[in-house]
């Protein structure tokens, strides 16, 4: 019932904002105070998490090698799968970040009578993931039209391109559908696939349900529950927030406050959850290290500083005791003066 908990949590958030924003004076709480707190927690929390990661030493050279490492000249080096130089690492990282290359290798295993186990490529995760993430990115950039005054050409163009099918008025965005469908598919994958369902926790379901609810409230606000959605008043508030002079002019519909509250919840939740893979993807040692452990010695930064101690030095230190104990030495003790 881990997913039921996520639904309950999101419904609670919706009720808090939906009912709360209707109390006199509370629009300022939900429209001004909550967003400021959320963005502050997001930024401070994000930096804190990255700094904590950066403080952790990497004791071993642990890149994931997916191909032939650099070796002798006649052995073909796989430059992307076992990067040897910084440029190759950067290329591998860029492909990972922009195309989710490692998800493309996702496999599923099944047991048949026999018993016999089979493995087969399963690209659904990659497909849902890429639809979801790119839709989300474009949705976020599109929202800049409400925060930037005047609106840059790029944002206006993106807005136009995203709604180029002109379905309804205001016209539907492709990425709204992509975001909602992506979240729903990633969520249902966790329910349908037994293996993934077994390892799924409430903190896997919750962000998906939350983002799904953000997408749905956004679409409802744009297309269906338009009463009280005066875009000029909303932009005035949004631009006001980023210029530190927030104004709430007139009444804005409850659906707007629900949407904003859910986004604020996401921002607050972000730094303390798996969503930190936004920063983590850059910091994963299995991807960002060079596959050059044969050529360059990887030093564990937390190793204590142990100086080398050769046998000659050891004998120098303990020669007297060794001679006393009758242990053979390579270099005899210097002749004693009083015996001479």
């Amino acid at each position: 019932m881990k997913y039921a908990f996520s639904f309950l949590a999101v419904i609670a958030l919706i009720l808090i904002a939906g009912v709360g924003s209707q109390i006199a004076g509370m629009p300022y709480f939900f429209g001004v105070f909550v967003p400021y707190v959320a963005i502050a927690v997001f930024l401070v929390g994000f930096v804190y998490r990255v700094v904590q990661w950066a403080k952790s030493p990497v004791p071993f050279s642990i890149q994931t090698t997916c191909g032939q490492g650099k070796s002798l000249e006649f052995i073909k080096h796989n430059r992307l799968e076992a990067p040897d130089t910084t440029a190759e690492v950067v290329a591998r990282m860029l492909l990972e970040i922009f195309t989710f290359r490692s998800l493309f290798r996702n496999t599923k295993s099944e047991i048949y009578d026999g018993p016999k186990i089979t493995y087969e490529s399963s690209k659904w995760l990659w497909l849902f993931g890429i639809v979801f993430h790119y839709s989300f990115l474009i949705v976020v950039i599109r929202h800049m039209r409400l925060f930037l005054n005047p609106v840059p050409e790029v944002v206006a163009f993106l807005d136009w391109a995203d709604s180029m099918f002109e379905i309804g008025t205001p016209s539907m965005y492709m990425t709204t559908a992509g975001l909602i469908a992506g979240a729903a598919l990633l969520f249902s994958r966790r329910l349908v696939n037994r293996h993934v369902r077994y390892i799924s926790l409430a903190n896997d379901y919750f962000p998906l349900v939350l983002i799904f609810a953000i997408g749905v409230t956004g679409a409802l606000m744009r297309h269906f529950l338009r009463d009280g959605i005066d875009i000029v008043a909303i932009k005035q508030l949004a631009v006001g927030l980023v210029t530190f002079h927030p104004v709430i002019d007139g009444e804005i519909g409850a659906i707007f406050y629900i949407h904003v509250f859910l986004v604020a919840s996401l921002l607050v939740y972000f730094p303390f959850s798996k969503l930190m893979h936004l920063g983590g993807v850059f910091l994963s040692p299995t991807r960002n290290m060079k596959n050059n452990s044969r050529a360059v010695r990887h030093t564990n930064p937390w190793n204590p500083d142990i100086k080398p101690h050769s046998y000659a030095g050891y004998e120098d230190e303990f020669r007297e005791f060794m001679v006393d104990a009758g242990i053979p030495v390579e270099k005899e003790l210097p002749a004693q003066k009083d015996e001479a």
């Binding site: 800049m144 925060f147 930037l148 005054n149 005047p150 840059p152 005035q236 631009v239 006001g240 980023v242 210029t243 530190f244 002079h245």
Partner: peptide, 10 residues
């Protein structure tokens, strides 16, 4: 948005 608007809401 902070840098772009320069604290000027227009």
């Amino acid at each position: 948005p902070l840098w772009y608007n320069g604290l000027n809401a227009g």
